[in-house]
Design a protein around this nucleic acid. Structure first.
Lengths: 196, 196
DNA sequence: AATCCAAGCTAACGTGTATTAGCTGAATGG
DNA sequence: CCATTCAGCTAATACACGTTAGCTTGGATT
């Protein structure tokens, strides 16, 4: 791992913990194990670090949630659907990289137009498009009742978003949130899946 | 309105726009129309201003959403329920004071334990308790199908939270969000209300 | 072996920020 | 009518932060 990558890693960690304005260039350098002026051999300044992190955030997010890359195989049954949903939810909730990006985005979205757009693309488009796609396919396969897949995607996704936010705020509640999420998905299945 | 109140008002506005660390004492003073040192006649320092604002946030939130103060009359029909939900949603989405507090809280929750707890009490308890109460009553009144009111409260509330977050991020989309919210509530009624 | 460059360092600068000291004038109260 | 208090002001302080200049060094290149 290069020094440049280590700088970006530590900067993201610090930004997510203290915010951009609350993080000094010196503290980033210290976390990396170099002196502040050495940082300028790799980046023009603090703002360039920020922009690189935004780039990374955008990339990692689209890798993990973009419709293109996201290859869920179609769940064949209610239990398969619950299992794969839970795995996905657990990963999103616990993965430290995704988590740091999410917390950082949550804080920075109001002062950075690009950050607002990325946050939005993620929460309002990517997540819902994944669910929309799966739900559409499951409707066609006769597993889920025919309905507006866009609306159902929101019904399915938004409690997850709420739980994830709580998990970021209070990490100690994450195990409990997994259970809450399962209850929600099971309920969703009870309502919208075709009984066999 | 006293100077002290004006300071708190402008500080909240600036904190919500630029964050706590991004707001200087001088800029608060300037917004109020005084010089920075005069601020110290009213507050011990920047941090005391922050704490006062947190107090205010907590108070305003519990005034608006606390179970105790919240007096919804029980909606008698589906349309009445949709109407009152929409009004409430519109208010929450547009009211500038509530909005500033919410945006400020969203940013500060990760660096301030108290802020995390207030955010949580609001999003995870207050909002859901209101809906839980109404839904329970409507189940007893034979308007809504019998089900777990706690779960249904989440199904009803979480898309609203998602829409509100988007509205804070991109205010220009708020009118559209009102329509999306109505679609969600109508769908909710279709699924959970007893047909007449 | 001589040269070069990347990546670190120390020292220093300029700016911005939170806060304090101490003055002033106007209202308040005995 | 004088004393006090309040709420503003200017000037100044101390420090932190982002950034630049310029030196050093060790490994790669020629």
């Amino acid at each position: 791992m290069t020094t440049k990558d280590r700088i970006l890693e530590e900067a993201l960690r610090l930004f997510s913990e203290k915010g951009y304005d609350g993080t000094s260039v010196e503290s980033i350098a210290e976390a990396v194990g170099i002196k502040a002026p050495s940082l300028y051999k790799h980046f023009k300044g603090k703002e360039e670090i920020l922009n690189c992190i935004i780039d990374i955030s955008e990339k990692r997010y689209s890798e993990n949630f973009g419709t293109a890359h996201s290859s869920w195989e179609l769940p064949e049954s209610k239990e398969a659907f619950i299992k794969v949903s839970k795995e996905r939810f657990r990963f999103t909730l616990f993965d430290p990289n995704i988590r740091r990006i999410r917390i950082f985005m949550t804080q920075e979205q109001f002062r950075n137009r690009r950050m607002a757009e990325i946050t939005n693309r993620h929460k309002m488009e990517d997540v819902q498009n994944i669910f929309k796609k799966i739900l559409t396919e499951m409707m066609e396969a006769g597993i889920v009742k025919k309905d507006d897949p866009e609306l159902l995607a929101i019904e399915l996704a938004s409690p997850a978003v709420l739980f994830i936010s709580k998990g970021d705020r209070m990490p100690e509640s994450r195990e409990e949130l997994l259970e809450q999420f399962e209850r929600h998905v099971r309920h969703f299945c009870d309502v919208y899946f075709i009984k066999q």
